[in-house]
Amino acid sequence: MVTKMVQATGFKRILELCKAGRFREAEMILKGLQDEFLALCEENDVLKKQLGEVAEILDLSERIRFDGRKYWLDEDGEITGPFCQVCYDRDGLLIHLQARGPQWECSHCKSIFLETVPEQPSARQNAHAEKQLPLFMDREYA
Rank of each mutant, 00 (worst) to 15 (best):
K70H: 03
F136H: 06
E56N: 11
T80A: 07
F113C: 01
V117I: 11
W72K: 03
F23K: 10
G21H: 09
E42W: 09
E115A: 01
L114H: 11
W72R: 09
F136P: 00
E36L: 14
S122L: 10
E53T: 01
Q85I: 00
F23V: 03
L73Q: 04
V54E: 13
G21N: 07
D45R: 12
A123C: 01
W72G: 02
K12P: 00
A8K: 12
G92V: 02
Y71M: 05
L133E: 10
Q120F: 06
K70M: 15
R124L: 05
K131C: 06
L114A: 05
M137T: 08
F66Y: 15
L94Q: 07
L15C: 03
E27I: 00
G52I: 03
T3C: 03
C41D: 14
I95Y: 06
K4P: 01
Q125I: 02
I29F: 14
M28P: 00
E78C: 06
V2Y: 14
S122E: 06
Q85T: 01
E130H: 11
D76Q: 14
I29K: 07
E140F: 12
R13Y: 08
G101Q: 02
Q120N: 02
G77D: 06
R69Q: 11
D45H: 10
Q103P: 02
W104K: 03
I79E: 09
F136W: 10
A26L: 04
Y141W: 08
M137E: 11
I57G: 03
E56Y: 06
W104S: 01
L51R: 12
V117E: 13
S107G: 13
R13N: 04
H128G: 04
Y71N: 03
I64A: 07
T116R: 14
W104D: 03
R13M: 05
Y71E: 02
I112L: 13
D59Q: 12
E130V: 09
F11G: 08
K131G: 04
E105W: 05
V86G: 01
R63C: 12
K19C: 04
I112F: 09
F66S: 07
P134K: 10
L58Q: 13
W72M: 05
M5W: 07
K4S: 06
R100V: 10
N126A: 11
E53D: 14
H96I: 00
F66M: 03
